[in-house]
Design a protein around this nucleic acid. Structure first.
Lengths: 168, 168
DNA sequence: ATAAACTTTCAATAATTTTTGAAAGTTAAA
DNA sequence: TTTAACTTTCAAAAATTATTGAAAGTTTAT
């Protein structure tokens, strides 16, 4: 396959995966584009490469900065802004894990904790089933949370080394 | 909080989490409803509880069966179908992991592998950056895949025991 | 065979999400 | 201070996704 075709395929695949996991497809595509760009790109270049509007590019880049995945750069003597992506895949994974944990896992964990405190008649099957499901989900969520917490602080080789050694 | 209010809150929270992770909100809500129902429910009961149409309920229930999360039940002497959710949270987690791995991770892994084989000029920064990002993502994806593979076969207490012991 | 009870399908509609593009805003050089 | 270069905003439009509901389909009892 040609490099140009391969790049397009990568951008498309990354966009598809993103949208399947609740991430705006364009945001994932812009991220993909920057991940395979050796140099920082301007808004103009991104608009052209992905055929998107200035407004869309601007908002998407702002979001990516908010996710901690890219940064603005300035070149001496130039007015326009350049965008550059961190290429360290372990950093990226940790950053995404950190944000999704904060934005989506923690709020639901808060609700689950609150729901765990609801009291009722232990003889009531409705109550018993509710309580069991909520508590069990809560326990799982806490384990996931702990694992993510560890991952966020971990060195890549140590993390996978530990996990895969145990699992063998 | 009242049990009735708590149930609604749980259904809402589960629906929200689902939609944030690319799962149809209604599907997550129906699943939540069945998770806290001690008895199997009819389509009619689900429609009423969530204020959704028959068509929506029918399609959603079919999808949940496709995800391996609920099953149809029949009661002796009755024509109508009942739906019952597996309440084992570890089973649920494994089932969801299994399906998402199959539907979303594996297709992207296939593309990444294909893209890893693209050859080019090692002096070309465009090629070098492309290759490095694709390879690094591929490696991470393989580790995630292996971990999920282990999880799918694992007993809950062994899995978390192993992980959290190492991380401590 | 017919009817009653129930389920499925899917074209039309509604709701939500994403994108556009032009106007307003900002910054820095002339 | 004016202008040019660039960025940001956001209401309107477009695209996508989800939902409805009624007709068609199926199954079982009579």
């Amino acid at each position: 396959m040609e490099l140009v075709a391969a790049k397009l395929k990568f951008i498309e695949a990354w966009g598809k995966l993103g949208s399947e996991w609740g991430i705006n497809r364009t945001m994932a595509q812009v991220h993909a584009l920057l991940l395979i760009s050796p140099e920082a790109l301007t808004t103009e270049e991104i608009m052209d490469a992905l055929s998107i509007s200035r407004g869309n590019a601007n908002m998407t880049l702002r979001d990516l900065i908010g996710w901690g995945l890219i940064e603005k750069q300035h070149k001496a003597g130039e007015r326009k802004e350049y965008f550059f992506a961190d290429k360290d895949v372990w950093n990226i994974a940790r950053q995404v894990a950190k944000e999704r944990k904060k934005r989506e896992l923690e709020p639901v964990l808060k609700v689950l904790n609150e729901l765990s405190t609801v009291v009722g008649d232990e003889k009531d099957p409705e109550y018993k089933t509710f309580k069991k499901s909520v508590n069990d989900i809560n326990k799982l969520a806490v384990n996931v949370d702990k694992t993510l917490e560890t991952m966020l602080k971990a060195e890549e080789s140590w993390f996978w080394g530990s996990i895969l050694k145990v699992f063998k």
